[in-house]
Amino acid sequence: MDHAVDDPAGELAALRNEVHQLRRETMQLRSAMKTRPVVDIARGVVMERYHCSAPGAWKVLVQVSQHANLKLHIVARALAADAGGVRLSRTLHGHLTAAASRVGAGTPDRDDRSGRR
């Protein structure tokens, strides 16, 4: 019994597409692995400042990223730097406060490192 492929060109195109998708997914996963530590730090900063859960802090970070039109890891780096003493920009601070309010996180009970409430 012959198991020849009925459409070798179609099969080849499908395999190339699958390889392309797998390569893209691998690159995305590698990028996520590199940025994960700073995102975790930023989530901890949000949890501490706004007295919220890990899922709540994640929602805050995602909303800040979306509303500020910045990649999440960029927002995370800025928050981690702010925790280390580098002031957060007014714009980013505004997005952070608004996002925390939208997701029902608390408000800081002390001035954060950015010097604003």
Rank of each mutant, 00 (worst) to 15 (best):
A99P: 06
V39P: 03
L29G: 02
L96W: 01
R90M: 11
L92N: 07
R77H: 13
A68Y: 05
A32E: 12
M47V: 03
T35I: 12
L61M: 13
Y50P: 03
A57Q: 08
S101Y: 14
G106K: 06
R49M: 10
A83Y: 11
A42C: 06
M47P: 01
H51M: 09
L92I: 11
E48Q: 12
S101T: 11
A99L: 09
D82A: 10
G84Y: 04
N69D: 13
A76H: 01
A32H: 02
R87I: 05
S101E: 15
M33S: 05
A78L: 07
A54P: 00
E48R: 13
V64L: 04
K59P: 08
C52V: 13
A68W: 02
L72I: 15
A42F: 06
I41A: 11
G104I: 09
Q63A: 15
A80S: 14
G84W: 00
A57H: 07
P55W: 08
V38S: 03
T97C: 05
G44R: 04
I74R: 10
L79M: 12
V75N: 05
M47E: 07
R36E: 15
A76T: 04
I74C: 07
Y50E: 00
R87G: 04
G85M: 10
V75G: 06
H51L: 10
R49V: 10
G104W: 08
Q63C: 07
L29V: 07
G84A: 07
V62M: 11
L61N: 07
V38I: 12
A68C: 09
Y50N: 04
L96H: 01
A99W: 03
K71W: 06
R49C: 02
G56Q: 12
L88M: 04
A78G: 03
A105R: 03
Q66M: 12
V60S: 07
L92H: 09
Y50M: 05
L88R: 00
Q28D: 14
M27K: 15
H73I: 08
R90T: 15
V103F: 10
L88V: 00
P37H: 06
H73R: 13
G94A: 07
L96P: 01
L29Y: 02
I74P: 01
V103D: 02
K34V: 13
L96Y: 00
A83L: 09
A83H: 09
